Amino acid sequence: AREMGVIAAMRDGFGFIKCVDRDVRMFFHFSEILDGNQLHIADEVEFTVVPDMLSAQRNHAIRIKKLPKGTV
């Protein structure tokens, strides 16, 4: 199932999404941004959540798609 959120932080090559449906900041890597979009803080996005290979306690966001403002 796809989830929605807002870009909360951007770093060098990765960032975090503030999720709508869960009280966490979800890690993502820039390589998972679809359509070659440039994302910025406060952009609204949808994404798929998958378990982190390195840590069973953590998840991360993949297949991130920018949404029109006002969607979330």
Rank of each mutant, 00 (worst) to 15 (best):
L54Y: 13
V50K: 10
A61N: 07
V24E: 15
L34D: 10
F47R: 00
M53G: 15
H60C: 12
R63D: 11
G13V: 03
A56M: 12
L67G: 01
D12F: 00
G5D: 02
F27W: 12
I17F: 00
F30T: 11
N37V: 12
V72E: 09
F14Q: 07
I41W: 02
R25L: 12
T71G: 02
E3N: 10
Q38N: 15
H29V: 12
I7D: 02
L34N: 06
T48L: 04
M26K: 04
L34T: 08
H40Q: 13
F47P: 03
V49I: 09
I33W: 06
I17V: 04
F30K: 06
H29I: 11
T48E: 11
F16D: 04
L54I: 08
I7L: 01
I7T: 03
K18R: 13
E32W: 02
D43P: 01
Q38D: 12
E32H: 15
L54N: 12
E3Q: 08
G70D: 05
R58C: 09
L39E: 02
D35N: 06
M26T: 05
I17N: 01
F28G: 00
F27L: 12
D43T: 04
K66T: 00
Q38G: 07
A56S: 14
V45G: 01
E46R: 00
G70T: 02
S55R: 14
T71R: 06
D21P: 04
F16S: 04
G15D: 06
R11I: 03
L54C: 15
G13E: 03
G70I: 00
R22I: 02
F14I: 07
A61G: 03
H29T: 10
K65H: 06
E3R: 09
Q38T: 13
F16G: 01
A1E: 11
V24P: 11
S55F: 09
H29G: 03
I33S: 04
E3W: 05
I64Q: 00
V50L: 09
A8H: 13
A42V: 01
G13Q: 03
E46G: 01
M4A: 05
K18D: 14
A42H: 12
A8F: 06
F16P: 00
L54G: 13
K69R: 11
M53W: 10
V49A: 09
Q38F: 12
I17R: 01
C19L: 05
V72W: 02
I7M: 04
M4W: 08
G5C: 10
K66C: 04
D23V: 03
D23E: 11
K66S: 03
F47M: 00
A56K: 11
P68F: 01
A1K: 14
K65D: 01
K65Y: 02
R63F: 00
A42D: 12
Q57N: 13
E44D: 06
I41C: 10
M4D: 00
A42S: 08
A42C: 14
P68E: 09
C19S: 08
G36Y: 05
R58P: 15
R63Q: 14
R63N: 14
R22Y: 06
N59H: 14
G5R: 12
K66M: 03
E46K: 03
E46V: 02
F16M: 10
K18A: 10
E3A: 08
R11E: 14
I33Y: 02
G36M: 08
R22M: 03
T71M: 07
H40A: 14
N59V: 12
G70H: 10
A8N: 06
F27S: 08
R22P: 06
F16E: 13
P51A: 15
Q57I: 09
G15V: 02
D43Y: 00
F47C: 02
D21M: 09
I7H: 00
N59Q: 14
L67Y: 00
F16K: 02
K69Q: 10
Q57K: 14
T48V: 06
M26F: 12
E3G: 07
F16Y: 11
V20T: 07
K65M: 05
F30Q: 13
E3T: 08
K69L: 06
A8P: 07
P68D: 07
V24D: 15
N59F: 13
K18W: 11
V45Q: 01
T71I: 05
I41H: 13
G36E: 08
V24K: 15
F16T: 10
N59M: 11
D21A: 09
K69N: 11
V49L: 07
F27D: 01
L54R: 13
K18E: 15
S31T: 14
A1N: 12
D12K: 08
E32R: 03
V50T: 06
R63K: 14
S31R: 14
V24R: 15
R22Q: 07
L34Q: 11
E44R: 02
F30P: 03
E32Q: 15
D52T: 12
V50A: 12
L39C: 06
K66L: 07
F30W: 03
H40E: 14
D35K: 08
L39K: 05
F28E: 15
I41S: 01
H29C: 11
P51M: 08
K66E: 00
H29Y: 11
R63H: 12
V72T: 08
I17P: 03
N59C: 15
N37Q: 15
D21I: 06
F47D: 00
F27C: 09
M4I: 11
L39H: 00
A56N: 04
V49Q: 05
I7R: 01
